[in-house]
Design a protein around this nucleic acid. Structure first.
Length: 158
DNA sequence: GCCAACGTTGGC
DNA sequence: GCCAACGTTGGC
């Protein structure tokens, strides 16, 4: 395989949608709707099927990377942007030129031990992670191959 | 195009 | 619940 797989991190509040919810979803797959940040959207547009995703629980106790998912469908329009009843409705977006996209991701594994923010911060090799940068709020962000390897090793996972 | 006001994110 | 950091909006 000449094309290298890419790695990402996606945040979700477990009270809204947790990795357990993903594992219980039909086909263990969900569409990642509701992203309303251009940078995050652009990262989703760069995703390819087979890319790996760290699943992160934000607003959790503790906030932590809890497992792995995989991109199984590349970007397509997020239907909630046109749905007036949706919390994610965007009156400025028109169907002929959808502003917001989503991807589908499928469950892969839950770490036996989740990796809290604190734990990740202790790892000098991870100090460049987007997640750990001051003020970082991006809900979809890139992870380098080296960071990916360190995180999976810390989790005792493959 | 500047920038103040406002809304959101997310750790604490 | 607080609030720092950040993104977006809109008046000018």
């Amino acid at each position: 395989m000449a094309q290298g797989r890419r790695y990402w991190l996606m945040k979700s509040e477990p009270r809204v949608f947790s990795i357990e919810d993903l594992a219980r979803s039909p086909k263990q797959t969900t569409c990642w709707d509701g992203v309303r940040n251009y940078q995050a959207r652009n990262f989703m547009r760069a995703m390819a099927a087979g890319d790996r995703v760290l699943f992160y629980h934000s607003n959790a106790e503790p906030p932590a990377v809890v497992g792995v998912a995989e991109v199984v469908r590349t970007t397509y329009p997020d239907a909630t942007q046109f749905d007036k009843t949706s919390h994610h409705y965007d009156p400025g977006s028109v169907p002929s030129a959808p502003r917001w996209d989503m991807v589908d991701i499928q469950y892969r594994q839950t770490f036996k031990t989740s990796l809290s923010l604190d734990r990740l911060r202790q790892e000098s090799k991870l100090k460049g992670m987007v997640l750990l940068q001051k003020g970082s709020r991006l809900s979809v962000q890139p992870v380098t191959e080296a960071e990916w390897a360190v995180v999976l090793k810390l989790a005792g996972a493959k």
